[in-house]
Design a protein around this nucleic acid. Structure first.
Length: 551
RNA sequence: UGCCGAAUGGUGUAACGGUAGCACUAGUGACUCUGACUCACUUAGUCUAGGUUCGAAUCCUAGUUCGGCAACCA
């Protein structure tokens, strides 16, 4: 990546490990469960996992943590890989599956039993809760905890072979029912779940639990630094216990805080609710904070990576302002997006002294500060469309850039023109504007060198193409939609987060390919939607230009 | 009232015992064939109280506040 990776506390740890000789090479991993789509919160983890490996010339594995077949699906496997690649990271040969280790994990489980460190617990789930107890008081040892190793091996074998119903028993680690850390009060290691697994089919009816599986996966793969989010902090003693008890390679788990952004939600479950209740149009709805949604919206991978670099990695639970993300996106788009003219709220302009039949074409730069990106051809004629708000009866102050009767402005790249009159209907709505142009000012500058206050954009009425514009805005109208725990976050959805309008575009824009990004000058950044065709142009508003100062 | 963790301008993040800096946001101005970009300037911060030290955001003690943890989810 071109972004410089800022240092953080994780890199401090790695530097120390390298200096002390504890590690000689760095291996990280990104371990998604294929049960949903990736969102920008995952992007932070991806940037950290892959970015750290890159920084230390190590490797980063992509490992699907597919230990719960009930929740997982092949659809997500494909989408996750596509999203990571889009973000700009590559796992090369290092694609792994937790499910490929099921055999090894089973062997390790038996080893734990043989060491007297695990037992089959036939207590119903609800009853075990009582034995586990509450944080402030020690729990009690459940029945069966002192069964012999032979008995437990036989029971675990019976579990594996389908001799028990789902939920009839679990394999538990035998640790400490009085531990102040609830996760150490004989946590479940294996449960029985008869579900078809996307990879192993019906080979297993027992599946390992997260804590058991994850530590072993990391260990098998030689992961040196296993980064995860803060909620796993209290799991670390269990992670360490499993690997120490098994006496196998021990990665170091390091926790960092999740990425949160204002005006959106980042929980997979809540995003799923929005999708299922049709409050958005699927996972890739451009309002969603999913990577596929942001991609469709027109956000760039580089901008997301930049954001992740800026927020860095800490243990502080924080909410970053969406403005920071927007700034990263605008910054990237400003450098890379070809310019075009589009009129989103059209009003007709008639140039009374321009020949009726004449059509001129102007060569406008694709990107004014980057001449190497070439030019585009824009037709010009007697009747144009301009933005409704580029005309005003009486200017509020001398900062107004547009037309009023008597005002000369520049039609971007074409001519200087002076407003002479305006047509209005009975309700005082402007119907059309009439102006005269200065033929000497072709290209946009007058030979006498006179300056005009404003430059406005336009499209030729007889040449422009009509398009649907999907104007996107922030998903929620509240900074933190989850702040009020008693309220339903879904009631805080911003009703204006999608507004569909019709616009007039310069003709070349119809030829855009889905995903192509543009800056519509003086308006904002837009990209051709997935549904865009040259017959039915559809553009998504990625972001407006930075809000102008109040006039 | 258990365990774990975190507190630096409005927000995010640096400073690793030695000048509290950067970015975003907001405001003011300059520039401009985009009210964008760019540039300049401005406002504003070390949770509290003690202690160690020539010197503390940083180390120690006590407190305060906030977050996480009691799935056969990850």
């Amino acid at each position: 990546m071109t972004e410089e990776t800022k240092t953080n506390f994780i890199h401090d740890i790695i530097d120390a490990d390298l200096a002390s000789g504890k590690r000689t090479e760095i291996v990280t991993r990104f371990p998604p469960e294929p049960n949903g789509y990736l969102h920008i919160g995952h992007a932070k983890a991806i940037c950290l996992d892959f970015g750290t490996a890159e920084k230390y010339n190590g490797t980063c594995h992509l490992r699907f943590d597919d230990t719960n077949p009930a929740a997982e699906d092949e659809e997500y496997v494909q989408a996750i890989q596509a999203d990571i690649k889009w973000l700009g990271f590559d796992w090369g040969e290092n694609l792994f599956w937790a499910s490929n280790y099921f055999g090894t994990m089973h062997t390790y489980a038996v080893e734990l039993i043989k060491k007297g460190k695990a037992y089959v617990c036939q207590l119903p789930q609800a009853d075990f809760k009582n034995y586990r107890g509450i944080p402030t008081e020690p729990g009690k040892e459940p029945p069966g905890r002192e069964n012999s190793i032979e008995e437990n091996i036989a029971l675990f074998e019976k579990m594996k072979n389908g001799g028990f119903d789902d939920g009839a028993c679990v394999l538990r680690a035998r640790i400490d029912m009085a531990s102040p850390n609830l996760h150490l009060r004989d946590p479940a290691l294996y449960r029985i779940k008869r579900a078809h697994h996307h990879n192993t089919g019906d080979q297993w009816c027992t599946y390992p639990m997260y804590d058991f599986a994850h530590s072993i996966e990391d260990s098998i793969e030689g992961v040196t630094h296993s980064m995860c989010t803060l909620e796993f902090e209290v799991h670390r003693p269990l992670y360490d216990w499993i690997l120490q008890t098994l006496d196998v390679f021990q990665p170091q788990q390091i926790e960092f805080s999740r990425l949160n952004l204002t005006y959106t939600v980042m929980s997979k479950r809540k995003l799923l609710e929005l999708v299922q209740e049709n409050l958005v149009n699927g996972w890739d709805d451009p309002r969603m904070p999913t990577l596929c949604g942001m991609r469709r919206r027109g956000f760039t991978a580089a901008a997301i990576r930049k954001l992740c670099g800026i927020v860095g990695a800490t243990k502080v639970e924080s909410i970053s302002e969406i403005e920071l993300l927007e700034s990263c996106v605008r910054d990237d788009l400003n450098e890379t997006s070809p310019r075009a003219m589009a009129v989103l709220d059209p009003i007709k302009v008639i140039i009374e002294n321009y020949p009726t039949d004449l059509v001129e074409t102007f060569e406008l730069p694709n990107l004014p500060k980057k001449e190497e990106l070439g030019t585009r051809t824009v037709p010009f004629s007697r009747e144009l469309w301009i933005e409704r708000n580029d005309y005003i009866d009486v200017p509020p102050n001398n900062k107004f850039k547009g037309f009023f009767v008597g005002r000369e402005v520049r039609l971007r790249g074409a001519y200087l023109a002076t407003c002479t009159s305006v047509e209005k209907d009975a309700d005082n709505n402007v119907g059309s504007i009439t102006c005269t142009y200065d033929p000497e000012s072709k290209g946009g500058s007058a030979p006498d060198g006179r300056k005009v206050k404003g430059t406005i954009h336009w499209v030729s009425a007889n040449h422009c193409v009509d398009a649907e514009i999907r104007n996107y805005d922030r998903l929620f109208s509240a900074e933190n939609p989850l702040a009020d725990k008693d309220a339903d976050f879904k009631t805080l959805i911003n009703p204006d987060a999608l507004q569909i309008t019709a616009a007039k575009l310069e003709p070349d824009l119809a030829q855009a390919k889905p995903g192509n990004r543009f800056q519509f000058e003086r308006v904002g950044y837009f990209c051709a939607d997935l549904d865009h065709t040259s017959e039915k142009p559809i553009f998504n508003r990625t972001l407006t230009l930075r809000a102008p100062r109040k006039v």
